[in-house]
């Protein structure tokens, strides 16, 4: 199947530091790709390059049939179809939950107030927060805030969703509610690229797991292979260290 998103040889440097050496990543429609690896291994950088929040220094990214790393591409248009969920939620504190979800619908998709509201409420319903639509982020728990973050991306009806450590900033007891929303998205065949430290979750939902270290993709494969029989020593080392900490 032709990939919906395809990155070829993308790299990213911060000053003299190489955050990401030239890497390739293809994502097929409906596929769930999970990026794992130690902190500072470049997973978040790779993810943020995919919607050009961090423009890559080299390489090429194709989304559907369009090369989006070329000059003159309307990125705002591209980003409507690529949803993003942030580690720190990045909700707009001056707006209600519904306001957060509908802003882009109103300003980017130019929907009427009523249509935006209908779609926004549907998205909030999907993450189980329709009741809290009038609450400001400050009055929601971390887990609820992140679900609003997911609803905000979901409302735009994206072709693919990127998750940048969506549960890392949450208290342990709040992680479950966010993961279960993501599981539902998978069951709906949403294409997703997820950076996470939740290995159990990765094993459950991933079609493919990508292990990264020191800014490079070391190894990738289906979760059952990668978790049980990794071929690379660094992958083995990373996984065994994780097991010790259990």
């Amino acid at each position: 199947m032709t990939p919906i998103l395809s990155a070829q040889g993308i790299s990213r440097h911060f000053g003299s530091i190489t955050a990401l050496s030239p890497s390739d990543l293809d994502v097929a429609p409906g596929e769930v790709v999970v990026l794992i690896g130690p902190s500072g291994s470049g997973k978040s950088t790779l993810l943020r390059c995919l919607n050009l929040l961090e423009p890559p220094d080299s390489g090429e990214i194709r989304f559907r049939d369009q090369c989006i790393t070329e000059q003159g591409v309307n990125l705002d248009q591209v980003r409507r179809s690529i949803g993003m969920v942030f580690q720190q939620f990045n909700l707009y504190p001056h707006m209600t939950a519904l306001g957060n979800v509908t802003l882009a619908l109103r300003r980017v998709h130019r929907l009427s107030r009523e249509d935006a509201r209908t779609r926004g409420m549907a998205a909030l319903e999907e993450v189980g927060l329709a009741k809290q639509h009038d609450a400001h982020p400050g009055n929601l728990s971390g887990g609820q805030q992140q679900r609003v973050g997911i609803a905000r991306a979901l409302a735009l009806d994206p072709d693919i969703m990127l998750f940048d450590e969506p549960t890392s900033a949450l208290d342990p007891e709040l992680v479950g509610e966010v993961l279960s929303v993501m599981r539902r998205l998978r069951d709906r065949k949403m294409t997703m690229v997820i950076v996470t430290h939740e290995m159990g979750f990765a094993r459950d939902v991933a079609d493919r797991v990508v292990f990264m270290n020191e800014g490079a993709i070391i190894e990738q494969g289906p979760p059952e292979t990668l978790f049980t029989a990794p071929t690379q020593p660094r992958t083995r080392e990373f996984l065994s260290r994780l097991m010790e900490h259990r």
Partner: peptide, 21 residues
């Protein structure tokens, strides 16, 4: 916070829309 800019741009708002809204 820089994340506010990113969230706005990631949902397809342009620079000026993100700034104003």
């Amino acid at each position: 916070n820089r994340g506010q800019w990113e969230a706005g741009r990631a949902t397809g708002l342009n620079f000026f829309q993100t700034l104003v809204h």
